[in-house]
Simulated assay, not measured.
Amino acid sequence: MDGLPGHVGTWKGANNRLRKWAADGTWEQGFTALLAQADADGANGSTDGSPRRRHTERAPRA
């Protein structure tokens, strides 16, 4: 398969790196750091920066 930029390397090499990062906790550390920074910056929980509305009404009971 083609499609990866040259600086990324082969599919096999990229896949091996991603699997290694998943196994050694690199992804989890990165996401934890991003969430901590978002909390410190007062992010509202939206991934695209748009305001997020919470549901204020309960669903009707059956």
Rank of each mutant, 00 (worst) to 15 (best):
P51Q: 06
D48V: 04
G13P: 05
A22Y: 13
T26Q: 10
H55K: 15
A59Q: 12
A43I: 01
E57M: 09
G30Q: 11
G9S: 08
D48F: 02
K12Q: 15
L18V: 11
G25V: 00
D48T: 15
P60Y: 02
V8M: 11
A62S: 14
G49H: 01
A38E: 05
Q29F: 05
T10C: 02
R54M: 04
P60T: 03
G45M: 03
N44V: 01
Q37L: 13
Q29H: 10
G49L: 04
W27E: 10
A23P: 01
L4T: 01
A23Y: 01
G25E: 02
E28Y: 08
K12W: 07
N44Q: 08
K20H: 12
R17V: 13
W27M: 12
G49T: 03
A40M: 11
L4H: 07
R58F: 09
R54D: 02
D41I: 06
A43H: 09
P60M: 02
A62L: 13
A22G: 13
A43R: 00
H7P: 05
N44P: 05
H55D: 14
A14K: 13
G45Q: 03
A38T: 05
G3F: 02
N44E: 14
R61P: 04
G3E: 00
P60L: 00
R53F: 10
W11G: 04
L18W: 07
A38Y: 05
